[in-house]
Design a protein around this nucleic acid. Sequence first.
DNA 1: ATTCATGCTGACTGCGTGTT
DNA 2: AACACGCAGTCAGCATGAAT
Length: 357
Amino acid sequence: MASDPGFGTRGGRPHRVAIREVAEHAGVAVSSVSRVISGHPDVSETMREKVMKAIDELGFVPGLAAQSIRTGATKTIGFVISDIRNPLLAEIAHAAETRLRMRGYTLLMMSSLHDPELEADHLRRLAQHRVEGLLVSVTDEQNPETVGLLARAGVPVVLLDRDIPDLPTASAARFDHAGGLTAAVRHLADLGHRSIGLVGGSPHTRPSREREQALHRVVAELPGVTARVHGGDFAKEHGAKATYALLTGEDRPTALIAGSNQILVGVLSALAELPYEIPRDLSLVTCDDAPMAAFLRPRLATIRRDVARIGRESADLLLEALAGAPPRSIELPTRFDRAGSCAAPPPSPPPSPSPDR
DNA sequence: ATTCATGCTGACTGCGTGTT
DNA sequence: AACACGCAGTCAGCATGAAT
């Protein structure tokens, strides 16, 4: 039995066992080997065993590239997200991959690192790989190059929590960010908070826009309550900077909402340097769980979403589109979990930190 | 005679490379 | 520039031989 299936060298160049060699080794025709490999019904048990024995002894692995030449099918799906190192996105990818693998597809994952140029480059590369479908969470919904590449992709596209009106051919799986955020703000207002700060993410993506719009909408319905938003990147650096700006400026909020798990890390790092104790001096709510957040005391009030579900559902939308169904969109809920990090605001304004940092 | 498993042949696929 | 070829496997259609 070969130790490394399908690999070897011949004269310094890579040599892979071909179907012809399997046929010769088994003493059968190439077409018979092909029938065995593809599970054709007209194959006797003796023939199957003979071929499988040769395949095993030679370590043959059918070449997907060669298969795709004839069939036109690569059984590969392109998956582009901002950063595969983000545990939240890793969970989405895992759920989607599991779903697609069950249907014989391989996922080709790429991180755009919030860089539209790199993202466009990935999309072009995936086209070269002849992927049969795309799962994409774009960095900038308005970027003409990205939108153009997706429009011309010629394969089904599913957007992950993104809105691109110029791309009506794409399906989409989105979260109702407004629902969870509205519940959180109402809870804070019920506790007595009158100034709420949101450390938002990129304005070029749907989740940030939805949250910001929802915040202004709900605040408009709550007499005496104001909101301040600091948008930026989905990054801890922005989280720290914006927190510092919000808490050291005029009209300091008594409650803060962190717009993502990466932003939360920055928010917490800024709070570690500022004289605020949670929840005594400041109420804190986060959007999405962070890996270590479960060990924080008090527990963090969190706007949660089922990320594994959006992974599964987006994979299903893509499978549906691959089967010829027209594009469609779905919306999944977000839920506010209140916890110890929220309390009534302090009777006097929160302590004023020293201006030097 | 019929059925089934198997073999054989040639077309076919997209792309890069070599030849005319 | 145009054309031919090789790559590695799939596929369809037909031929063949053995078993029922």
